[in-house]
Amino acid sequence: MNIIAVTACSTGIAETYMAAEVLERCARTRGHSIKVETQGALGIMDKLSSQDIASADIAILTNDIAINGDDRFKGIKTFHVSISDILESPQDIMSEINSEP
C-alpha cells in the first residue's frame, strides 16, 4: 500500500517528529511504502508533492492542530488521528488501515 501522512503538534518540537518516526517504522515493517510530511518548528519538511498525493492509496493526518494545506487530500481515503494515538497504539491504526477494502 502507498501511504502518505502529515504530522503536526502544538509546540512543533517533539511529537511531530516522533509521530513521523513511528508511522514510518510501522508502515515499513508491514511492507507498506510511506512518506511523511512534518509540519513543526523546522517548517514543512519532506513536503508531499502532487505526484506523491496522486499515487497514494491512503492519507493519515494528525488532528491535534490544523494542518497546512489539508485541501490537497480531497478524493483520497483519509484517516484523521491524534498524535497520542499514533504514539501509544500505532499498531491499531495500521490494522484499521489494513482492514479497509
Binding site: I13, A14, E15, T16, Y17, M18, A20, E21, V22, R25, T38, G40, A41, L42, L87
Partner: peptide, 11 residues
C-alpha cells in the same frame, strides 16, 4: 537536533 532526538527516542 530536537527533531532528531525526538525520532531517536522512538527507536
Amino acid at each position: 537536533i530536537f527533531a532528531q532526538l525526538a525520532r531517536r527516542i522512538m527507536r
